[in-house]
Computed example of a mutant assay.
Amino acid sequence: MPDRIASIPAGGARLKILLLLVLLGLGLACWLAWRDFQRFADTPLALQEAELIDFPRGASFSSIVDELRSRQFSNEPRVYWKLLSRQMQIASRLQAGEYRLEPGTTPRQLMSMLAQGKVVQHHFTIVEGWTFRQLRLALAREAGLNQELPGLDAATVAHRLGIETDNPEGWFLPETYAWVRGDSDFSVLRHAHEAMQRALEQRWPGRDPGVPVKSIYEALILASIVEKETGVDSERAQIAGVFSRRMQIGMRLQTDPSVVYGLGETYDGNIRRRDLDTDTPYNTYTRGGLPPTPIALPGLAAIDAVLHPAAGNALYFVALGDGSGRHEFSNSLDEHNRAVRRYLIRRKQQ
């Protein structure tokens, strides 16, 4: 009996040692797992080049991880991604969208991007002088935009944007606009329309006294003509001055771009005498005043030129014909006719 009692402490010591070894083993395993988790979080994903990846709206956390694994960006256990999101306290803040993953991006950086919604921004540029038709065609070619405009006529588009006329021509500011995957062509159009409205409303009160345009819309119409008449910045105010003086004295604008716009899709690149003689609402040779709508999308420079036209006496201008895009301005018809002859001689020599 004494011998059995004496053996209990020895067995208890072995049990304590065994428990200590188990705890040490568990601690080591936890430390190794934590170190492996940290390695996962801060090791770049398997990317050889930049990749775009789209997480659709409503995507679950598991589906996001599955997409990464299916693209072979990461083969780590799904639980690591879950632990990382909890460690960063962003599990409920991940945002859908299109993301650009650059070589060197780590899981931790990716989770931060998703939480902050740093989606890819695409850019669409509206070119000065485009017509509304050209704008629609360009939007239709923009891959990634949801297409809502096909099937809508111009009047419907104008109505949806709150434009009072059936023709929305001119009401979109030439500028570069950012969009993200999921946006529509109509949303880009709305941004451009709102930008044009702001630009006109901000500039209209500061217009020069005596400018012949009586409303913001008339300013937009004349600016579209100035836009189409020259691509030389320094001449816009001069050309606006010519048209302003013509309007003030009741002289017809006689501008070819307006006639061309009235011809529509029948225009083949050449304007002929019969085109100038054929009356249409846009023929400024046969009708006085401004055409009924803008003929293109004017930029800010053309708008500013109309609201602040250059002073002078010139009533005419004709292209120099030297390839510079510049014009020769004349005060009288006789001077203008001589300038036209010089232009024709240059054209013939070329």
Rank of each mutant, 00 (worst) to 15 (best):
P2Y: 09
D3N: 07
D3E: 14
A13V: 13
A13S: 12
R14L: 15
L18K: 09
D36N: 14
F40Q: 13
A46M: 06
E49R: 15
D54V: 13
F61P: 04
F61H: 07
S63M: 03
S63Y: 00
I64C: 02
I64P: 00
V65S: 06
E67G: 14
E67I: 04
F73T: 02
S74M: 01
N75T: 06
L84Y: 05
Q87T: 10
A91N: 03
E98N: 04
R100S: 12
L101C: 10
L101M: 09
E102H: 04
P107G: 02
L110N: 06
A115D: 13
Q116L: 12
V119R: 15
V120D: 03
Q121R: 14
T125D: 00
F132T: 08
Q134I: 01
R136D: 01
L145W: 01
L145S: 06
N146W: 00
Q147C: 11
A154G: 02
L161G: 08
I163M: 07
V180H: 14
F186Q: 02
S187T: 09
R190E: 11
R190S: 10
M196W: 10
Q197Y: 11
Q197F: 08
L200Y: 14
W204K: 04
P205E: 10
R207I: 05
P209G: 01
Y217N: 04
L220D: 10
L220R: 05
E229M: 11
G231K: 13
I239N: 12
A240D: 07
G241T: 05
R245W: 06
I249W: 09
G250R: 06
M251I: 03
R252I: 07
Q254G: 09
G269T: 10
G269Y: 07
R272K: 13
R272V: 06
D275A: 00
D277W: 01
T278Y: 00
T280F: 08
T280K: 04
P281Q: 08
Y282L: 02
N283M: 03
Y285S: 01
Y285W: 09
T293N: 11
L297F: 10
A302C: 06
A305I: 07
H308P: 01
A311E: 15
F317Y: 15
V318F: 08
S324N: 08
R326D: 11
E328M: 02
E328F: 12
F329D: 01
S330C: 02
E335F: 12
V340E: 10
L344K: 13
I345P: 00
R346K: 14
R347A: 12
